[in-house]
Design a protein around this nucleic acid. Structure first.
Lengths: 147, 147
DNA sequence: TATATTTGAGTCGTGCACGACTCAAATATA
DNA sequence: TATATTTGAGTCGTGCACGACTCAAATATA
């Protein structure tokens, strides 16, 4: 057990490692996503829509752990880029249905190799990737349940 | 080995786990940092200054892996909060020296338990924390060297 | 069934984060 | 030593990310 002060050093802070890793990974996406002229959060919205072509804004928000005040302007920008469309739900007049548009659908096949190109840059073994993902998912679950 | 399409699913994307975990952790900091009226990036700058009371802006940038266009406005806000001071270096007229001010120094002792409060919320074993930090640091090194 | 509560999407304001770029000072090179 | 190159900090513009809040529609409760 180290002294308390040791944990106030940047190099001993797991949270900084997480923060730095996340930003570096997002930066790695930039050149790969540039071909499609989308940002990383926009790519995440497309990932959701590639699994289900039409879902509520609230559904995307829950999947991505984002709030409406982040997601609303994000999907509005994506609507302007003609990647998706926004329509009111008839079932629930409060709800907005986000539907994949042709341009958004076209990216799915074009970006099929993107996950591999990205992760290959990690220079990680299969075991390391699996271990890291398992730990991160556990952390996300633990932190998300608290709220 | 799964089919290529499987890796386009959100739940199979390690990068999303990383992005979500990072945002959730930053959110956990918010109530703890509120006592000191600072943000998480501001806390990181203080961590650097608590190790060395006066360093160049460039030094902080390298430690935090941030660029000057992010760090300059960040430290200017911290200067207004009287957490630190900004002075020109005499050795190198291009360089700005960031020095810890009294208010910033006072937070060091007051926030001594913060790393423990934060990490205890992870609900992780010592082994899991060590493993996760090791993997994240390796990832940061691998991605940072490429640039 | 009238009223209270909850819920989904949204606005507003602030603080990062970063690409592209500028500018002056320092350093390297012809 | 004059010129070219590099470097440190900065401006500008855009896109998140989120706390605090609003508002209307849906749902729960008296």
């Amino acid at each position: 057990m180290k002294a308390k002060e040791e944990y106030q050093k940047l190099e001993n802070q797991i949270c900084f490692s997480l923060y730095a890793a996340s930003r570096l990974v997002t930066k790695c996406y930039k050149p790969l996503l540039k071909d499609f002229e989308i940002t990383y959060p926009q790519y995440l919205v497309l990932l959701v829509l590639w699994e289900q072509e039409a879902v509520s804004l609230n559904f995307i928000a829950e999947k991505l752990l984002l709030q409406s005040n982040t997601l609303t302007p994000l999907v509005k920008r994506m609507e302007e880029l003609e990647l998706l469309t926004r329509t009111k739900s008839h079932m629930d007049e409060r709800s907005i249905i986000i539907s994949l548009a042709e341009k958004g659908r076209a990216i799915k096949d074009a970006a099929i190799d993107l996950p591999f190109e990205l992760v290959s840059g990690f220079n990680f073994s299969m075991e390391e990737i699996t271990m890291l993902k398992t730990l991160l998912d556990k952390l996300v679950n633990n932190l998300n349940d608290d709220q």
